[in-house]
Simulated scan of single mutants.
Amino acid sequence: MAYPFEQDFVTGIPSGFASNGGYGGITATWNEEQQAADLVFNNAQNFWRLSDSPLTTDFWFEMDVEIVASASPPPHFGFWLWTGVATYEGHRLCVYSNNWAHSYWTSGGSEYEQITEAWAGWAVVGARRTLRLDVKRQANLGVWLLQLSVDGEVVWRDYKRWYSSLRPCIFGYGITLRLHRVAGDTGSGLEDAPVPAHRRLPVALAHRVLVPDNAAAQRYFHRGLRMLLGKRNHYYHGGHRIAGTVKHRVKGVIADEPLRRRVLLIDQTTYVVVRETWSDAANGAYSFDHIDAEPRYLVIAFDHERQNRAVVADNLRTQPMTELSL
């Protein structure tokens, strides 16, 4: 099958139109009464692979889909952008726990960097929506711009890195989906990636931003930042420091209680996470050393125990490390 295409399943599922991917636990049947394709996914990472060619530039893919049944609500389904390599490699953008979530998958089926992206509380059994994914690759930067629309309304867009070609697939986990129509074409109308302000930081890095909603999330795998640590340090390295303490004010007690909390240092211009650390449990102290003096910084301390709100200090300036060490 080649782009462009449009299939409404009025007379059946065309021979060779799609095949089972991922774990492979999918049963696809034609529903003559509904003139639609019913897809039953078992409880595994399954996706229905349309028999298309790998796409390396702009494209869009959409599906008119109805949620017929869900083995363990809330429903869990969406898009899988498969690279064509091995079993799973690619992006997964799906409804998970009433939100859209994005994650990367390795060829062997390991998931990492799952991040909540947008609300999807409408996704219940009986709901029917037209879901569209517009995709554009910025080849010189190695990133993809993804834009998600629900019934014509854009609900999320962001830049994601890696991979040179993708194939759109339909993902489901423990769910029955009824496809009334699927369509796709090349060209997306999406714009090129912008260049961030600070030292022309690569977009692939600048958009790897850890936002407050995800910093303490149980399913956010913060160790995914480690691969970018060398690049980030290169652009923000210097002879200065920002230091402080994280403490909890206890009513009726003169001294505040020191806390161990995750602390993020953020470039206030580009919102790039420059460094991350944990405050010391004994005295609440933290320090970001050897950083550049040029940007203004934002520091956020998150309560991973979810008992208190995050504490923010903005518009911070660094101090020379030589002065601080006296």
Score class of each variant (00 low, 15 high):
A2W: 06
Y3S: 05
P4E: 02
F5I: 08
G22E: 02
W30M: 06
E33D: 12
Q34M: 02
F41W: 12
Q45S: 09
N46C: 13
F47P: 03
F47N: 10
R49W: 00
D52C: 13
D52A: 15
D58H: 03
D58L: 02
W60A: 04
W60M: 06
E62I: 06
V65P: 00
S72Q: 10
H76M: 02
F79A: 04
W80P: 08
W80H: 15
W82S: 04
V85M: 09
T87C: 04
V95Y: 08
W100L: 10
H102T: 03
Y104D: 11
G109V: 07
I115D: 08
T116F: 07
W119L: 14
W119D: 13
G126P: 01
L131V: 12
R137C: 03
Q138F: 14
Q147L: 12
W156E: 12
Y159Q: 05
W162I: 08
L166P: 03
R167W: 03
C169S: 13
T176Y: 10
T176Q: 12
L179E: 09
V182I: 15
E191R: 14
P196W: 10
A197P: 00
V203Y: 01
L205C: 11
V209F: 08
L210H: 02
Q218R: 15
Y220G: 00
F221L: 13
H222E: 14
L225T: 06
R226L: 13
K231H: 14
Y235G: 04
H237I: 05
H240T: 15
R241N: 14
A255M: 07
L264D: 10
L265P: 11
T270L: 07
Y271W: 15
Y271E: 12
S279Y: 01
Y286W: 11
I291V: 05
E294I: 07
R296D: 14
I300E: 09
L316M: 14
L316H: 07
T318N: 09
M321T: 07
T322Y: 04
L324M: 15
S325V: 07
